[in-house]
C-alpha cells in the first residue's frame, strides 16, 4: 500500500526538511538572500501544487525548479545591474547557521566556501547540501559528469589548501 498523499497542511515539515538546503542552492544563482527566498518560494509552491504527488526523491525536482526560477529572475533583471551587484552581495550575508559554540574551524570553512570560484562552489553546494549525484549535477548544470566530479575535487583541494596552507605546501 502506498503512503497516503500529503494534505495541504503538511507543507511545513516538508519545508523544514528541505527549505534551508534549497535556500543555499538558490543563493548560488541569485544576487541576494531576498532574491533566493523569492526563488525558493516560487519553486516550492510550484512543487507543492503540481509535483509533490509524483513520488521519488523530491529534492532534485525542487532544485530543478529553483534553478529555473533563479534563471528567470536573472533574465528579468538588467544585465548591467547584475554585474554591479553580483560581486557586492556575495559575502554580505550569512550562508550558514552560526555555530552554537565558538568554532573557528567551522567559521573558516564557511568563509572558504563562499570564496570558491562560482563554478566550483555550485557543484559543492549541489553535492553536499543538495544531495545530488554527479550525474544529477551534470544534468542540472548541463555539463558532463566527469566535469562535475573534477570541479568538486578541485574545490575540495582548494578548500583544504585554504584551511591548511602549511600542510599542503609540505
Amino acid at each position: 500500500m502506498s503512503a497516503p498523499l500529503p494534505t495541504a497542511s503538511d507543507w511545513r515539515p516538508w519545508f523544514e526538511t528541505y527549505g534551508a538546503r534549497l535556500l543555499l542552492v538558490a543563493r548560488q544563482w541569485t544576487r541576494s538572500g531576498s532574491d533566493a527566498e523569492d526563488v525558493v518560494q516560487e519553486a516550492f509552491v510550484r512543487f507543492w501544487r503540481q509535483q509533490r504527488h509524483l513520488g521519488g526523491d523530491p529534492l532534485p525536482l525542487m532544485i530543478t525548479s529553483v534553478r529555473r526560477a533563479a534563471l528567470d529572475l536573472l533574465r528579468s533583471r538588467d544585465r548591467r545591474e547584475q554585474r554591479e551587484q553580483a560581486h557586492v552581495d556575495l559575502n554580505a550575508e550569512l550562508w550558514f547557521q552560526p555555530a552554537i559554540e565558538e568554532n573557528e574551524r567551522a567559521t573558516q570553512l564557511e568563509e572558504a566556501v563562499t570564496k570558491l570560484p562560482s563554478e566550483q562552489r555550485e557543484v559543492v553546494v549541489l553535492k553536499i547540501w543538495g544531495g545530488l549525484t554527479f550525474a544529477q549535477i551534470a544534468e542540472q548544470l548541463e555539463m558532463s559528469a566527469n566535469t562535475a566530479a573534477s570541479r568538486y575535487r578541485y574545490a575540495l583541494t582548494a578548500l583544504r589548501q585554504t584551511l591548511n596552507p602549511v600542510e599542503n605546501h609540505g
Binding site: A8, W11, R12, F15, G19, A20, R21, L23, L24, G33, E37, V40, Q41, F44, V45, W48, E93, L94, W95, F96, Q97, R105, A106, L109, E110, V113, V124, I128, W129, L156, L159, R160, L163
Partner: peptide
C-alpha cells in the same frame, strides 16, 4: 573535509518566507 562540510547547517528560511508560504498555500 567532506564530513566537515556536511556538518555545516545552511541558514534557515526567514520567518517572513515562512509567512509568505503560509499565506500562499
Amino acid at each position: 573535509l567532506e564530513r566537515e562540510l556536511e556538518a555545516l547547517s545552511p541558514q534557515a528560511p526567514s520567518a517572513a518566507l515562512m509567512n509568505r508560504l503560509e499565506t500562499e498555500l
